[in-house]
Nucleic acid binder design. Sequence first.
RNA 1: CGGGGUGUAGCGCAGUUGGUUAGCGCGCCACGUUCGGGACGUGGAGGUCGGAAGUUCGAAUCAUCUCACCCCGACCA
Length: 493
Amino acid sequence: MAKELKDLTKRADNYSQWYNELVIKADLAEQSAVRGCMVIKPYGYAIWEKMQHQLDSMFKETGVQNAYFPLLIPKSFLSKEADHVEGFAKECAVVTHYRLKNNPDGQGVVVDPEARLEEELIIRPTSETIIWNTYRNWINSYRDLPLLVNQWANVFRWEMRTRLFLRTAEFLWQEGHTAHATKEEAQEKAIEMLNVYGDFAEKYMAVPVVKGVKTANERFAGALETYTIEAMMQDGKALQSGTSHFLGQNFAKAFDVKFINNENKLDYVWATSWGVSTRLMGALIMTHSDDNGLVLPPKLAPIQVVIVPIYRSQEQLDTVNAKVAPIVENLKKQGISVKYDNADNKRPGFKFADYELKGVPVRLVLGARDIENGTIEVMRRDTRGKGTVSIEGIEDYVVDLLDKIQENIYTKALNHRLEMTSKVDTWEEFKDQIEKGGFILAHWDGTTETEEKIKEETKATIRCIPLDGEEEEGKCVYTGKPSKRRVIFARNY
RNA sequence: CGGGGUGUAGCGCAGUUGGUUAGCGCGCCACGUUCGGGACGUGGAGGUCGGAAGUUCGAAUCAUCUCACCCCGACCA
């Protein structure tokens, strides 16, 4: 494996290929037989579960409840909202029959031609339509509002081109769908959920993000406004990591969801939707990993601390076991997930490398030498720095170290982004800078036409108009027309 | 869907002017010595060479078709 890693990093010019191979081999996922689908292996899934649980509790703090809606959607639902069908119809898997039968010509089974569905069903690419069709019956009065529902589900999009974690055909996600009595309340909700995503990315994933609004061109199909968190990967490319949409009354009108307001008048509800997916795992991997494998933020690591014993004989192992037991117990009491790996079928060196590959934040090593000295060896994954500390109070030391690692990898990623972000005012400079990667802050005249031309010439797109951006008079970097603020350009995944 | 590339053991690959029984490294299994950074020795298991149908005395190797995967576009979270 060591040789393999070296070979991989030597040809690291294509970053995504590097992380794909490294991480797949590192027990995260493997390609399944179905085109563009992924198998998430147990260790990878454990990371997703940690993310899921954290996000879920953050949603609930904002009053959101979970529910579940059907996988299959009648085809006609998709044509009710014009922009929506435009955005999704082309990439849907369609169910046409409901039965198989034994092949009359021999072995195997065939689709029973008698079992053709009157109306075809679509495997959900997203659930707006079926959810809004349901909401019609749930909402009558302003007293039923706001309706704040989230669903954890899989969705399927028959993408022309897939990339592991970043754009698989089937992926896991959550999609929140809310209904409100007023426009203002819905807009606020969309922003509120964007902030939840921003907090989650920065505080838990240790991935710094820019919060912003999408241009008309990059907007979600059917939305009036799309908010986004944009992260920068180590290679300088942008990754859209989560989106929150203000949908106006589009879906309410399409599915006839009306309510009686407090003035006794009938009105359409206002809507939002917001989602993050297993793409976040891609963001996590591509933000922090190094040549030795994954680097996980302590707050999302399935195993936060691993303890490896060093011994020659059974007696020595017994001694180490006895010494380690209270440490494990004390760490668990403090809510730390700790694994004591005293399996005797792998050598210590192998374990060291293996847990580094898996991104375990802290490693403790205890052997006869330490027991004599009353010490223990501590290794932190982020810097790979090693030290020997007193075994007294090791638990507090570790708890503190986990916090430091969480903070350090965030700071490291943030500094990387700042270094790779530049203000650009001329077109020549722009073309030059985009080749170097990273974010470019530039003025833009606000037209889709200019945006498209810049994309054609440089492959750079407007990632977002930052929400915290300052007003500043300037000239569009491409057309020279007046502009009031800078937007973020970058190449993206 | 267009352009390029790759399919040989679990993984990474060699072998390809057609020529016996298809090879290497890692991993796997057994035994022994080891065990503070991916141990070593000896022995062993593991393959319809992506698939189909051809040419040939003979095909991993040549031609045809086909499938899958990867990269680059168009599309997208």
